[in-house]
Design a protein around this nucleic acid. Structure first.
Lengths: 329, 329
DNA sequence: CCCGGCAATTTGAACGATCAAATCATGCCT
DNA sequence: AGGCATGATTTGATCGTTCAAATTGCCGGG
């Protein structure tokens, strides 16, 4: 490792004081134009970079954003977080932040990790994923005034929380609406929906998009809806069931379910999935695509805004998904 | 955020000096048993945790391990890195380290990121993924004596590099060997292989396992091998080709290829994939499973050993994969 | 000619931890 | 009883940066 270049080295080489070098970088407006240029020259020549630990000690800012990484996931949907994480790392880097990972099994252990991280690494903010009903994490963070943004709407206490903390989400209902609309436009009249048991915010939202679109077209959803645990098996059985009930097209809450449906559906049956995972591309499944890169960028934007201004206005961003059309529908 | 507890707070509360508190944590053997217990008590009571930035300034150790995160990936295999990353985060945490992410487009920009990170965050080590022929990164890191471990063997200059830096890898040849063996045991005699164009270390390795297993059984590989870019399309065309050539079973270098093969193969044809991605589980594809959690743990083990001892002995770990058997073979 | 005011720059202190060296306490040996 | 090794604890210095206050240089006005 090359010897590190400190701010004192730069100061000496440029014939100015430490503070002037610091000012050139952090408050350029107070430094005389000529000096500023000279110092920047020397900085470039020596390849100086401010040491983060030292800066952090003085300013209290680590320029670190922490996020939990989940195990590969139940399956097909695993890669969603992966893509989000990549986008987050890129957007954060552009804003001068780095991403720190941690794991946790449940809310409780995640909160323990919060305490640990905050005391030792002092991340400037957290990004929460997989928010759910009665999320202990959000209230814990809010109480302690730790900056954070949730990727996923707060599903409980909507009235209270909607304005309490920043969040970014993809409009699932709009996604299933687009899918349903497309099927109706293709002439289908009995469009079924395969989802998850009621109670999960995300699942209910996706179902709502399908249901309201049917309603808009004067169609009734009765008997065209099945639910079960996420997975190919559920998709298969639910699809068989719905086809029996006369469905000619199926909107699914996930690619896993859609893949199952695809397995048992004849060639005439249209199937759409959700998440546009790699599998969808592989098997030619039309699927709702989430703009994960944009979502990540929005998260970083909200965080930097909150970190820069003293009074962080809780804001939210709801992004529209798009429909990636393939052979299946 | 609760007021932070510093080592001085603990010292005051315990009626000892800063250094004694520091010693209780870092060199317990020099502290009298009674004092040690008392101090630990106070530490627990106040919830003290050493501030990482301050420690880093003095010791030069950040307890950070940096790794690149790739974009979701070309497709189905994307989740491999995801699972590895999760394992890495867990193993690292157990060893007292955290994972820092970064992105890069190519070797050159990754090296630029090395410089940036080393100067600012000072990660203690790097984990390299997707090592390839003539990898610029390894030589750069070796020259500067930056500790790192590669997940993936160094494919170029094997003689030189094999002992030059630590690496962890999964024995791809052993994986295809197991798959091939199983097919032969089931009575197949014409077992084909679908892989990638020669030149990629990983691909050549996987093919070698298939080829040597045929040889062991006195069978010739001639005409039973096809190659192309990774993807479902390649899998389909190559499979059609090989079935024409009389193959009754197919070993594939990836799940993407295998999925393609599965699309065109009749029910009697056995197909095996590689990586055991979620898709494999979803479509019932027998696939070679990489022990990614173990690989991650091995990486952390090698790194901590290198970081703890002054003379880092370059070591390597080659892990055996397992075969996850499903309907397809 | 001196002084106030302002812009530009420098100096000293501090963040919280650990290292290295100094101090204090204790018991043992001669 | 005094010296000395050994163990336990404390003190001072330091890592690299930024904040806050002090200093310097310069100009114009009274």
């Amino acid at each position: 490792m090359a010897d590190k270049v400190t701010i004192t080295d730069v100061a000496r080489a440029a014939g100015v004081s430490r503070q002037t070098v610091s000012n050139t970088l952090n408050s350029p407006e107070v430094v005389r134009e000529e000096t500023r240029r000279h110092v920047l020259d020397v900085i470039a020549r020596l390849g100086y970079r401010a040491n983060q630990a030292a800066r952090q000690m003085r300013t209290g800012r680590s320029r670190l954003i922490a996020i939990r990484i989940d195990p590969g996931g139940d399956g097909i949907n695993g890669s969603v977080l992966d893509r989000f994480l990549h986008g987050l790392t890129e957007s954060a880097a552009r804003a001068g932040y780095r991403i720190l990972l941690y794991t946790a099994h449940d809310d409780r252990s995640e909160i323990a990790t919060f305490e640990d991280l905050i005391a030792s690494y002092e991340p400037d903010a957290f990004v929460l994923t997989a928010t759910h009903h009665d999320d202990l994490r959000t209230s814990w963070l809010l109480e302690r005034r730790v900056p954070f943004v949730a990727f996923g709407r707060p599903w409980s206490d909507l009235r209270d929380h909607v304005a309490r903390h920043p969040w970014v989400d993809v409009d699932g209902a709009a996604g299933t609406e687009a899918a349903t609309r497309r099927l109706l436009a293709a002439g289908h009249r009995r469009v079924g929906f395969i989802g998850w048991p009621p109670g999960s915010g995300v699942g209910d939202d996706r179902r709502a998009g399908w249901e309201r679109t049917l309603a808009e077209h004067g169609l009734r959803p009765d008997g065209l809806h099945r639910a079960g645990e996420d997975g190919v098996a559920t998709g298969e059985s639910a699809a068989l069931d719905l086809l029996d009930a006369g469905a000619t097209a199926l909107v699914c809450a996930s690619d896993s379910l859609a893949l199952g449906a695809l397995n048992v559906a004849g060639p005439g049956v249209a199937v759409t999935g959700f998440d546009d995972t790699p599998v969808a591309g592989a098997v030619g499944l039309t699927s709702v695509h989430q703009p994960l890169g944009d979502a990540a960028a929005a998260c970083v934007a909200l965080l930097t805004r909150a970190l820069d201004s003293a009074a962080p206005p809780a804001t939210h961003v709801l992004l529209p998904p798009s429909l990636t059309v393939r052979r299946s529908a």
